[in-house]
Simulated scan of single mutants.
Amino acid sequence: MQPRSVCELKKQVVIPKPKLLKPENDPLHIIKTRKITHGRPATIAGPMVRYSKLPFRQLCRQYDADIVYSPMILAREYVRNGNARLADFSTNDEDTPLIVQVGVNNVADLLKFVEMVAPYCDGVGINCGCPIKEQVREGIGCALIYNAELLCEMVSAVKSKYGDSLRLETKIRIHDDYEQTVSLCKSLCDAGVDWITIHGRTRTTRSSQPVNLEAIRYIVEKIQEKKVPVVANGDCFKRADVDAIAEFTKVDGVMAVRGLLANPALFSGYETCPWSCVEKFWYYTLEYGGLPYQLLQHHLYCMLENMNLERRLLKEMMSIKSTGELIDWFDTRFDFKRFGEAGWAEASAVPYRVDK
Rank of each mutant, 00 (worst) to 15 (best):
232 A>C: 11
282 W>Y: 15
270 Y>N: 06
246 A>K: 06
262 A>Q: 14
276 S>R: 14
266 L>V: 05
230 V>L: 05
247 E>C: 08
286 L>R: 15
279 E>W: 11
284 Y>F: 15
287 E>P: 00
248 F>Q: 13
292 P>Y: 02
288 Y>R: 11
232 A>R: 01
270 Y>I: 01
236 C>R: 04
252 D>Q: 15
272 T>L: 07
235 D>S: 11
231 V>F: 01
294 Q>N: 12
253 G>Y: 02
280 K>N: 13
235 D>Y: 07
253 G>A: 15
242 V>Q: 05
276 S>Q: 14
250 K>S: 13
265 A>H: 09
279 E>R: 09
291 L>T: 15
287 E>C: 11
287 E>K: 15
241 D>C: 06
273 C>E: 06
239 R>W: 09
233 N>H: 06
244 A>V: 11
289 G>C: 06
268 S>V: 01
273 C>W: 04
283 Y>N: 14
230 V>T: 07
293 Y>G: 01
273 C>M: 03
230 V>F: 03
272 T>V: 10
260 L>K: 03
280 K>F: 05
244 A>F: 12
238 K>H: 10
289 G>K: 04
256 A>T: 12
241 D>Q: 07
263 N>Q: 07
250 K>I: 02
230 V>G: 02
266 L>T: 03
283 Y>T: 15
266 L>C: 06
275 W>V: 09
265 A>L: 06
285 T>R: 09
284 Y>Q: 11
250 K>D: 12
273 C>Y: 02
270 Y>S: 05
269 G>D: 01
264 P>Y: 07
277 C>H: 11
273 C>T: 14
260 L>Y: 03
257 V>R: 03
250 K>A: 12
231 V>R: 00
264 P>N: 10
233 N>I: 10
233 N>P: 11
277 C>R: 09
232 A>W: 03
284 Y>M: 09
251 V>N: 03
265 A>V: 05
236 C>K: 03
249 T>K: 04
267 F>W: 00
285 T>W: 14
241 D>T: 05
263 N>M: 04
262 A>P: 00
291 L>Y: 00
275 W>C: 06
270 Y>W: 07
275 W>G: 06
240 A>F: 04
250 K>Y: 06
238 K>I: 09
239 R>I: 08
266 L>G: 03
274 P>E: 10
261 L>E: 07
264 P>L: 09
248 F>D: 04
235 D>N: 13
239 R>A: 15
283 Y>V: 10
252 D>W: 03
290 G>M: 04
286 L>V: 13
244 A>H: 08
240 A>D: 15
284 Y>H: 14
255 M>D: 07
291 L>Q: 06
234 G>C: 04
240 A>V: 09
231 V>Y: 00
261 L>W: 04
261 L>G: 01
256 A>Q: 12
246 A>P: 02
272 T>D: 09
241 D>K: 08
268 S>T: 01
264 P>G: 10
233 N>R: 03
232 A>N: 02
264 P>T: 09
283 Y>Q: 14
259 G>N: 08
249 T>W: 01
280 K>I: 02
280 K>P: 02
230 V>K: 01
285 T>C: 15
290 G>I: 05
247 E>D: 12
241 D>V: 07
232 A>D: 00
246 A>E: 05
270 Y>R: 02
281 F>R: 03
283 Y>R: 13
231 V>D: 00
282 W>H: 14
268 S>Q: 08
233 N>T: 14
260 L>G: 04
275 W>P: 08
264 P>I: 07
281 F>K: 06
285 T>A: 15
